[in-house]
Structures are given as C-alpha cells and as structure tokens.
C-alpha cells in the first residue's frame, strides 16, 4: 500500500463532495477511479495533492500523514498531479514549461539536465517544439507537455485527471503506452477516467465511486466482470469491449 484515504470528507464550500471516502492504492499498481459525473472523482485527486483540504478524515502516503500538507509539500514527498485542463504556462516556451516541472530540483543542475533529456526522449513533441510558446499549442498538445513536465521530478505516485480528455486516438495510445511504461519503471499511478474502456483496459486495480463514496474496489478484471456494476455504471457493452488487446 502506498496511499490510503480514511473517512475523508471534503468539498468546495457548497456542501461536501466526498462524504467519508475510504480508498487504498497498492504500491506499483495502476489504479483507475471510475463512476458517474459528479461522483467526486477529481475531488479525490485534489484532496490528495493538497489543493483542497479535507474537512475530516486522514490521508496517508506510506508512513507520512499528508492530510493537511500543502501542494508543494505533497510534491516533495513524491506525488505529482497532472490537472484535467489548463496546466501549462502559455507565455513560456515548451522547454521552459518542462523545466518548470523540475522546480523542486532547481538546486541540482546536472540532474535537471539529465531528466530533461530523458523526458524529451519519451515525448518527442518536447524536442520538436521546444522553442515555441506553449500557448500556441492545441489542447491535446498542451496535455502532452503536462505529462512530460510531471515526470521531471521522478515521482513515486502520479495522479492523472482524465488523461484521455481531448486526445486523438494516436496521442491517446502514446499517452497510455507511457502510463504503462512509467508503471513498469516502478511508479504507482492513480487516474480518473471517463473513458472506461481505455482506463480499465490499462489499469490493474479499479475503484467505482458514487455520491462521494467508494461503491466497489477490486482488480480491474473483477470490476469488469462484475455483472451488476458493469450494467449500472459502465454501460452495458463496455465490459465486452474493454478486454485487454
């Protein structure tokens, strides 16, 4: 277990979105949160990354309590979040954007250089469009930059908020290939996905959420095979289609 949420209650001021949420993320897993719109999936990520503070409950990373940690503290502990949209710095170049991902490493120039080389190897767009202003990229291209940037700190746990959103099939494949690669390199991944087909297809574990609580947790295979759940939350035919290719 790398991350655990216990009885977390959290919201934006207009009522609690998470209403006593318990969630466990296994070390080395790709855990995918699915569920209907408004169930509080993205809120889970915001609570973990420290952007939102839980009102009640406890969030623990390995042996450290991070319930009330601030975003930069969470980051330095090895959790990095890629937001749902608009994470880039539009007036900076693509290169500067990716370098900003290494902000916590700013005192170690050598490491920064090495990581940048690694990341641009993984995401060719970084090399190709390095000197361009990031604001001139399309929504999907921006997303690629955000991914590249998040890897600069070599995190333990990567939080991905709907990585499929706005991506074309080709980039989508590249992104999920990279999700798998990161996972193989020892990184735990917690993602929120609406595209259940792809999300559960790539995941090892799955969490089904409803109304701010966890309705079901298991391996992605178990969730896909669960007849009632598949029918109710995932749409009838998804289970069939999402069989790993």
């Amino acid at each position: 277990m790398i991350l655990a949420l216990e009885e977390v209650v959290c919201g934006y001021g207009g009522g609690d979105v998470l209403q006593g949420l318990d969630l466990v993320v296994e070390r080395g897993s790709i855990t995918c949160i699915v569920g209907p719109n408004g169930a509080g999936k993205s809120t889970v990520l915001r609570a973990v990354s420290g952007i939102l503070r839980p009102r009640l409950g406890r969030i623990q990373l390995e042996d450290t309590d991070i319930t009330h940690a601030r975003p930069h503290e969470v980051l330095s502990l090895g959790i990095v979040q890629v937001p749902q949209s608009n994470g880039i710095f539009p007036q900076m170049t693509v290169r500067e954007n990716v370098l900003m991902g290494g902000y916590p490493l700013r005192r170690d120039r050598e490491l920064l250089k090495r990581r940048y080389a690694e990341v641009s190897e993984l995401f060719p767009i970084v090399r190709e469009r390095g000197p361009e202003r990031a604001g001139n990229l399309s929504g999907g291209q921006r997303r690629m930059i955000e991914f590249a940037r998040s890897l600069m700190v070599n995190p333990k746990l990567v939080l991905l908020d709907e990585p499929s959103l706005g991506l074309d099939p080709k980039s989508l494949k590249a992104v999920f290939d990279n999700v798998a690669l990161m996972n193989e390199a020892g990184k735990t991944i917690l993602l929120v996905e609406q595209n259940v087909r792809i999300g559960l297809g790539a995941a090892t574990h799955a969490v089904v959420m409803e109304s701010g609580r966890v309705r079901l947790y298991g391996t992605s295979r178990e969730i896909l095979d669960h007849p009632e759940i598949a029918e109710l939350y995932l749409g009838g035919h998804v289970a069939r289609d999402a069989a790993p290719a």
């Binding site: 009522g15 609690d16 979105v17 569920g35 169930a39 509080g40």
Partner: peptide
C-alpha cells in the same frame, strides 16, 4: 440539508 453537488446516475 445536504448540498446537491453529489452525483448518482
């Protein structure tokens, strides 16, 4: 009275 910002299908 709980808020409406909760989702169920």
């Amino acid at each position: 009275v709980p808020g409406v910002a909760e989702g169920a299908l």
